[in-house]
Design a protein around this nucleic acid. Structure first.
Lengths: 201, 201
DNA sequence: TATCTAATTAGATAAGTATTAAATTTAGGT
DNA sequence: ACCTAAATTTAATACTTATCTAATTAGATA
């Protein structure tokens, strides 16, 4: 995801009329005239805004005779937001060297890893407790190559080195911001974005 | 969160120069002059953009003598994005009645709920398998009042009706978009936003 | 006080954008 | 072929915004 795409996405949402269109579409598909009436603008205005939303992939369209029905594209509404974070954090490594400090949480992590991994590095099971789960996920995620684009198949094979249930772990990677998916490829997020168990309440 | 705030947030990110400022700040705090030089603009331009980012709470500032250092506010970068989704989906209930269909997944849900809840409704443990976990979380989440603002303490008490580890479950609610947090209050998301196990790969 | 530096403000310009009315197009129906 | 309904395009207007230069302010120091 490059700069222009992210800017285009935010421009699409940077207008009250367009947000109100999306709010209305959240209730189900609607055509241009109905939108125009509900928002007290002309159909031409709806066409204008629909173009911007379409360019950012935020809506879908379906034609029935003369009428065009608009609907939400929830996938892009969520994932474009995540892509913004990825773009901001991806490039730089932090300028201040924080990594070499001996922190007290290292002991806890060691214990969890000893308990949940076999001596030859396989994951016994995914911890139910979130705190421990994040430690386990991070322990696997750091073995991924940063900046590399993984095909889904390739990522599955990698995860299988640790556990058979690759689908669950792949999904957890996304949910907890260890990785992000763009189209069909997966990529590691920068560490600043990872869910951190230290900050749990 | 109201419309104006969401629009203001997206306007703040709807400019390439401002995004590039955030990218630079992701590497650590920087002052105005350095930002101006790295972006090949004048300090006045940085002041202009900093004002917009500040109004959207996306950056923090620290003064040292004459120099003002800017840094990221990662909390708002993430949470304002989630607030957009919440605003879009919160209001409407879907116009088409999909709820009354007898779907085949109902059996699966029933089985999971029988297995993980005691006969008097307590959660035995949180399933490790994501699919089952989402069913369990949803089963609890539907008991929350939609549109109500829950204080953290109040939410904890509610969760404790089902399980002692309220912190983990509260966190899972956020992670899987069952609820969102704004300042110190928690609120149920509309169902369209909930993570759905049917859509898992 | 005078001076230096970083940041801000004020004013100007140029580019971008939201909206509308009017003309045009698209896809069917009679 | 003609008519109708919905959407789009065009052209114009008013408003917003990104950027710069030049002047000013704020804070620290000699």
């Amino acid at each position: 995801m490059q700069l222009d795409k992210v800017v285009q996405y935010h421009k699409a949402l940077a207008d009250p009329t367009r947000i109100r269109i999306l709010i209305l579409l959240a209730g189900g598909e609607l055509n241009g005239q109905v939108l125009a009436e509900k928002l007290s603008v002309t159909p031409a205005t709806i066409t204008h805004h629909a173009a911007k939303l379409r360019e950012a992939s935020l809506i879908n369209e379906r034609r029935d005779k003369n009428t065009i029905f608009f609907s939400l594209n929830p996938y892009f509404i969520r994932n474009s937001a995540l892509a913004t974070e990825a773009l901001i954090y991806r490039h730089n490594q932090p300028r201040e060297g924080m990594e070499a400090m001996d922190n007290p949480s290292a002991r806890v992590q060691d214990t969890v890893i000893r308990n949940f991994f076999t001596t030859d590095g396989k994951l016994k099971s995914l911890p139910a407790q979130l705190k421990k789960k994040l430690i386990v996920l991070e322990h696997i995620a750091v073995q991924l190559e940063k900046g590399k684009c993984y095909q889904e198949k390739e990522l599955n094979e990698f995860i299988k080195l640790y556990h058979d249930d690759f689908a669950t772990i792949r999904r957890e990677f996304i949910m907890h911001h260890f990785m992000f998916r763009e189209r069909d490829v997966y990529e590691l997020n920068p560490k600043e974005m990872w869910a951190r168990w230290e900050t749990l309440s």
